[in-house]
Design a binder for these strands. Sequence first.
DNA 1: TATATGACGTTGC
DNA 2: AGCAACGCCATAT
Length: 110
Amino acid sequence: MKDFDQRVTAVLRALGEGEVVSYGDIADDAGFPGRSRAVGALLSAAGDNDDLPWWRVVRNDGRLATDPSAGQAALLRAEGVTVQAGRVRDAPVGRFRRAPVTPRGPSPSP
DNA sequence: TATATGACGTTGC
DNA sequence: AGCAACGCCATAT
């Protein structure tokens, strides 16, 4: 196991409920800035490994990582994250590392 | 070893 | 806001 994998895995396991981060943020926190794509490859290799909260990982734009078939939207909603049109809305778009999820219902009036 | 592919990110239009 | 092109890194063939 490479240090990269070990680090990324640790960061993922450190995430809590409703905490959504992007690939780039994970790589950055793991100490490997710029390897966002490598994180995706790692999760891809992990596959159905439930030990890793892959569903809490989204794109930097807030869009879901995998296809809707993966059920990532449902998993995120189960943790209190608001997903609309395949996109996370509980966090500021751009760089939302450990975005604090606002547990509330339908109130889209920022 | 070289080429192609992809669970990404940024920039430009 | 959305879409296309380029760049970057790791795997697979």
